[in-house]
């Protein structure tokens, strides 16, 4: 097995753990908040899910930089300055900053969870959608603008779900 295949496998595992973890963290959070409080069992489920997300994030970052090293060593350096790559790096940076802000309780839970969910899906979709972005000649700021719209849509959908479930937080 060559390095490229190993990196793709690790990147996929990291993404699956992160996206799956973020999705289930949101589901568990919504279920937990239905009765207005998070009991110890619900809290333990959430802690495990956050741990899975962090493992996914570590795999995503390490394998992602593995690709960058591979590009550097195989003469594909121009890929390191691609706007899509930088948009993905920015989104991963937002995931990290959001995790710190959530832990510090410096961001409202509704915004932090929407940001986390949308960012994970954004990080997953950005490369598979590269042909779409290239067809509209999207630069770094265009991709970030589309991502910001995606965050707003996610927050609105989650707000609707919370309202339907009668969650006030």
């Amino acid at each position: 097995m060559d390095w490229h295949t190993i990196l793709i496998a690790l990147h996929l595992i990291g993404t699956v753990l992160g996206v799956g973890g973020a999705t289930f963290a949101e589901i568990f959070l919504l279920k937990s908040l239905r009765d207005g409080e998070i009991d110890p069992l619900e809290s333990s489920f959430l802690k495990v899910t956050y741990r899975v997300i962090r493992i996914g994030l570590a795999l995503l970052v390490l394998s992602g930089f593995g690709f960058l090293i591979l590009y550097r060593l195989t003469g594909l350096e121009e890929r390191l300055l691609s706007p899509l790559l930088w948009a993905k790096l920015a989104i991963v940076g937002i995931i990290l900053a959001n995790a710190i802000l959530l832990q510090a309780r410096k961001i409202p839970l509704w915004l932090g969870s929407a940001l986390s969910l949308a960012s994970w899906y954004g990080a997953m979709l950005i490369i598979p959608l590269r042909s779409v972005f290239k067809s509209i000649n999207a630069g770094f700021f265009d991709v970030i603008l589309i991502y910001a719209a995606f965050v707003i849509i996610t927050a609105t959908i989650l707000f609707g779900i919370r309202r339907a479930l009668g969650i006030r937080h």
Binding site: R72, E77, R79, L80, L81, L89, G93, I100
Partner: peptide, 23 residues
């Protein structure tokens, strides 16, 4: 810790730019 982390992120991203500029 956060200041050191930001310096680390700056160094990392600088490294990506530097490597990407080797032609």
């Amino acid at each position: 810790t956060l200041i050191a982390g930001l310096i680390g992120v700056f160094s990392t991203l600088s490294g990506v730019i530097i490597s990407g500029s080797v032609r």
